[in-house]
């Protein structure tokens, strides 16, 4: 594994994008970043600017307005940028799949690299999802 990928697995800066979610997944993501779970020991930091981000933590079943912004955000992120869909709505739209104002799950709009199902997923599940993402990155 080359130095670039190794550094990327050891220092992951996450950007939180809530696309018309009910905010429960957002609260769980916030919980995962509190001192109780201490994600900083894995090098994970929350960043405010999309230009600093390595992982976009995406929640919510996307509304049409959010879809426009999501595409713009994904283009603004410097590559390599990974997308992690957190929550059942982000993975597959769940109970909103026939809704008229939802623009589809995330993998219809941007490439998604990890799915963390749950409604909402516990912070332990979010951490496990990130660990699986890191292992997949290490494999290539």
């Amino acid at each position: 594994m080359d130095l670039k990928t190794k550094a990327l697995t050891k220092s992951i800066w996450v950007f939180h994008f809530a696309a018309a979610s009910c905010n429960n997944c957002d609260i769980e993501i916030l919980d995962a970043l509190t001192p109780k779970f201490d994600l900083e020991r894995f090098g994970i930091l929350l960043v405010g600017s999309i230009r600093h981000a390595d992982v976009i933590l995406a929640t919510g079943a996307i509304s049409h307005k959010a879809a426009v912004r999501l595409k713009r955000l994904y283009e603004q992120a410097p590559q390599p940028c990974l997308v992690v869909a957190v929550g059942s709505c982000a993975c597959s739209m769940c109970i909103f799949r026939d809704s008229y104002n939802m623009a589809g799950p995330f993998d219809g709009l941007v490439p998604v690299h990890a799915y963390i199902p749950g409604c909402p997923p516990k912070p332990e599940a979010i951490i496990m999802g990130v660990v699986k993402l890191v292992k997949a990155l290490k494999k290539g």
């Binding site: 670039k4 550094a7 050891k10 001192p35 900083e40 020991r41 390595d54 590559q79």
Partner: peptide, 25 residues
Amino acid sequence: ARVQWRVGPPLLQPFYDFVKLLGKE
């Protein structure tokens, strides 16, 4: 981190941050 009762990053963390940033677009 210790003041906030948590563990904190490993010793080489700033180095990993720096190298990762150099590898980004």
